[in-house]
Design a protein around this nucleic acid. Structure first.
Length: 874
RNA sequence: GCCCCUGUGGCGGAAUUGGUAGACGCGCUCGACUCAAAAUCGAGUGCCGCAAGGCGUGCUGGUUCGACUCCGGCCAGGGGCACCA
């Protein structure tokens, strides 16, 4: 007996079990078919799935199921980004060991994911904290070392002097450690770096080839790499300071050299340090600059401050002109030479600084058509184009010409027997520091020996495993504190030596996991060459926009580093990228001002708009702004609860249908109920269709009447539109077309109940019903299976081919054309799709509304955009 | 501070990328079924106007026969900024 209601609670586990038994989502089972690799950014195992995950993985699953139906050998794997700080925080708070905590979280989240019915190849599951995984990561690190891609140098970190630990930027709040509250200091540590800057140019130019990446992500990466062409210019000190007799600056605005008012050094500039060694006031100033975090945001939003060193430099083109030298908090040692010349009139930061210290501003670039005499600079610097003024031999030149002229002169004039300057391409991109003074990460496979230096751990000794007997009750790195772990013999000379106790940045883990998925259980190497060649690059990668720069750039770098150290990877890891939006929700505040969870709130809609009340007690609740779901604001919706009360298909359908995938989706209970109703409707209409449809497998009849033809046209147009929308990842539009299809089918069914159904119409209904099940299968796979079986098919819809639209049935014979008069729509005409211009012209000009709108004025122009629009210009 | 994105009915959004603005859904209104409710089904729903018609895509100016779409200026919200992942 066919139940009236679709029972998801029974059906979903039923179909999931059958899919699993038949192993239909295994990759690599269709060797002769073209491959398709779809990957969603793997999750951090926080312990709970959130709606953002549901959305991310639902999108990937639609593509995976769609491509499988189109005959591809699909790789759709899942794993865990399992190293990271939260596990250590949990250990410090609850005493649970990071490994135990992490693996328990993985188990919980795997179970949650499985209830969603995703078409994943679970046999390829990996976790980055598994020694089988990080063994190869250590191997890669050593391969990179041998290939010259690894470097060791000093860099600055946020140091918490109380907790004796390095802090992440997010752990520094208002210049203080998040837990200790102590003032954070900047400290220099010797750290391992991956030399991503060797690939600056390549990473930049190859962005052009990433045609299936969002333009905004490419733009962000382009800006991040930050290629700029400028000059290095050497300024002689008016009188030497110790051994130092010059300062070298980098500038992209050499044209403004005659507008220079000062030089500024980074607090960490060698000369600044040298002066500070003799000048306690400057030392104190530099110390002050070192407080307040290492992030660019912290440095650039801090109030501009400087310290006049008393030194002066000589202008390169005027021996009688000297400039003051400041140390300033907004100059970064990491960029250029750590020193700049300041031109207040044409750089906002320089202007702010000059205004504060009374250094003045001379305009040297005057925009075209403006009288130089009228040009004054108060609070806003001018950084546009123009002609040079007040600049001696540069006067009258364009900015570009002046840049060239200055570079030429600097190159050909000498200072201390060397050219005074040189053209230079500079990148903002810095090398990637991967050392972390933490336990829960991949150990860096190096042994420090007094006589041999930093020695790689021999390959046969990999993996260097994390010791399990560690505690988190004291400050500092547990690896460093461990009584025995770090003490080993030098692999080269045998002398007692010390293991590297730093672990790797977790971004390293996620920089190559996509490659490991191609061959996840390979014991000998990260992945075999044939596996890499078969599957890479990832055809469609899906994840959050928050990874637009770092993760994606590191992965692109890693692929090149792997290539150059002998691994058979593609240079670009992700051929197609899609960045999906977040799941957001209203916030609620109770009478006491505390955040309330949506589950504790009842919404009423009436004349006065939407109002909210506390379920417990009925007190009025304030509806706050819509924000990203977060624990702190309590505006989360638990996927488990949604799956339990509405089913996985409802959750999937809602997150896919309610917003375009690249934008945020607002979770609403009304919307979820709408999705739920549609799933019931699919089941109901399939039953009704089944009663009038020809048996499964019936061939198309020779003669097709008008009613059947109309229905077939609707079916085929829907197939064409849904297919195109899925290809373009417009899932919301694909679902809208399916809903329209169901509306049309309802109308068609209403029309036949009295009449009786001929063979041709029965066939058309069969085709419609089968198509409906297949079109919905990627989005709502469980109910689609139930409908497919209900329609009398023996196999699974998950294994059925994607329907193909017949172009003859998609084409329109009559089209409607809007007729505009002077750009305003006045009428609409219905003409054959191949009507000639003369016919359309007569038809358009004959319309009453058109005649009225023309008001008897003569026709000036008749514009016909074929199959689109008519515009009558009078 | 710098870089990037977004803004369309009461709400989420659609618009073949310069060619009928508001598809589809939510909500709401009215009706059918019901003792009643739920569920379901049908009709309506941008704003003003009795209508003819007018106005409408954050604001403002421009290009065009024609602008949600392109360009300039502004406003608001969001993401990233190198040790959160």
């Amino acid at each position: 007996m066919r139940p009236d209601r679709y029972n998801f609670a029974e059906a979903e586990p039923h179909w999931q079990k059958i899919w699993e038994e038949k192993q239909i989502f295994r990759a690599g089972t269709r060797a002769s078919a073209p491959k398709y690799y779809v990957l969603e950014m793997f999750p951090y195992p926080s312990g709970r799935l959130h709606m953002g995950h549901v959305r991310n993985y639902s999108m990937g699953d639609v593509i995976a199921r769609f491509m499988r139906a189109r005959g591809y050998d699909v790789l759709h794997p899942m794993g865990w980004d399992a190293f990271g700080l939260p596990a250590e925080n949990a250990a410090a708070q609850t005493g649970a060991h990071p490994a135990k905590w992490t693996y328990a979280n993985i188990a919980a989240m795997r179970a949650q994911l499985k209830t969603l019915g995703l078409s994943l190849d679970w046999s390829r599951e990996i976790a980055t904290c598994d020694p089988e995984y990080y063994k190869h990561q250590q191997g890669l690190f050593l391969d990179f070392l041998r290939a010259g891609i690894v470097d060791r140098k000093k860099s600055k970190v946020n140091w918490d002097p109380v907790d004796m630990t390095v802090l992440a930027n997010e752990q520094v709040i208002d210049g203080r450690g998040w837990r200790s509250g102590a003032l954070v200091e900047q400290r220099e540590l010797t750290q391992w770096f991956l030399r991503i800057t060797c690939y600056s140019e390549e990473l930049l130019t190859a962005l052009e080839t990433l045609e299936r990446w969002p333009e905004k992500v490419r733009l962000m990466q382009r800006n991040w790499i930050g290629r700029s062409e400028g000059v290095l210019a050497r300024f002689a000190l008016a009188s030497p300071f110790g051994d130092t007799r010059e300062i070298e600056v980098f500038t992209t605005r050499a044209d403004t050299l005659f507008g220079a008012k000062f030089l500024a050094l980074a607090p960490d500039h060698p000369l600044a340090k040298a002066i500070a060694a003799q000048n306690p006031d400057l030392a104190a100033f530099c110390e002050d600059c070192r407080r307040g975090g290492t992030s660019a945001e912290a440095i650039e939003t801090a109030e501009k401050q400087g310290f006049d060193t008393g030194l002066r430099v000589v202008h390169p083109f005027d021996p009688d002109w000297t400039l003051p030298v400041y140390v300033a908090n907004f100059i970064l040692m990491d960029y250029g030479t750590g020193a700049i010349f300041g031109c207040p009139a044409h750089d906002q930061r320089d202007l702010d600084f000059a205004n504060k210290y009374g250094l003045g501003a001379t305009v040297v670039v005057c925009p075209e058509g403006v009288n130089p005499a009228d040009l004054t600079i108060a609070d806003a610097a001018f950084d546009g184009e123009g002609r040079l003024i007040n600049s001696q031999f540069l006067d009258g030149m364009t900015v570009e010409q002046a840049k060239n002229e200055v570079a030429n002169r600097l190159e050909t004039t000498a200072l201390f027997n060397a050219p005074q300057g040189a053209r230079k391409v500079n990148f903002k991109l810095r090398d990637w520091g991967v050392s972390r003074q933490r336990y829960w990460g991949c150990p860096i496979p190096i042994i420090h020996c007094e006589s041999c230096g930093a020695v790689p751990v021999p390959n046969e000794d990999l993996p260097v495993k994390l010791p399990e007997d560690v505690t988190f009750d004291q400050p500092g790195n547990p690896l460093d504190r461990h009584p025995t772990w770090k003490h080993v013999a030098c692999p080269s000379c045998g002398a007692p030596s010390r293991r590297e106790t730093d672990t790797m940045d977790t971004f390293v883990d996620s920089s190559w996991y996509y490659a490991r998925f191609t061959d996840p259980h390979n014991m000998a190497e990260p992945a075999s060459a044939p596996a890499l060649q078969r599957w890479l690059p990832v055809d469609q990668y899906i994840g959050g926009i928050e990874h637009a720069i770092l993760h994606l750039l590191y992965s692109r770098f890693f692929a090149r580093a792997m290539r150059d150290s002998g691994h058979a990877t593609a240079a670009e890891p992700f051929a197609g990228l899609f960045t999906q939006g977040m799941v957001v929700h209203e916030t609620y505040k109770g009478p006491d001002g505390a955040w309330l969870s949506p589950a504790a709130v009842r919404i009423e809609t009436g004349d006065g708009g939407r109002r909210a009340f506390q379920i417990d007690g009925g007190a009025a609740v304030e509806i706050g702004p819509i924000e990203k779901m977060s624990k702190s604001k309590k505006n989360t919706v638990d996927p488990d609860e949604i799956v339990a009360s509405y089913g996985a298909d409802t959750a999937r359908l809602f997150v896919l249908s309610d917003s375009p995938p690249d934008r945020d989706v607002i979770w609403s209970d009304e919307g979820a109920q709408g999705a739920w109703r549609f799933i019931q409707r699919l089941w109901r209409i399939t039953g009704e269709l089944g009663r009038v449809a020809a048996p499964a497998g019936t061939l198309a009849p020779d003669a097709v009447g008008p009613q059947a033809l109309a229905l077939r046209q609707v079916t085929h147009r829907t197939i064409a539109q849904v297919s195109e929308n899925i290809e373009r990842l417009r899932f919301n539009s694909a679902i809208a077309r399916i809903r329209e299809f169901v509306n049309d089918l309802t109308t068609a069914l209403d029309a036949v109940t009295e009449a009786g159904v001929n063979a041709d119409l029965a066939y058309a209904f069969r085709e419609a019903a089968d198509s409906l099940a297949r079109l919905t299968a990627p989005m709502t796979p469980h109910v689609a299976e139930a409908c497919w079986a209900d329609l009398g098919h023996d196999g699974l819809v998950a294994e059925a081919d994607w329907p193909v639209a017949d172009p003859a049935l998609v084409a329109q014979d009559m089209i409607s054309l809007p007729v505009q008069v002077n750009g305003k729509k006045r009428a609409e005409i219905l003409v054959p799709h191949d009507a000639d211009e003369e016919t359309i012209r007569k038809e358009s000009l004959g319309q009453d509304a058109v005649v009225r709108a023309m008001e008897g004025k003569p026709l000036k122009k008749f514009i016909l955009v074929p199959k689109r629009i008519v515009n009558v210009v009078v």
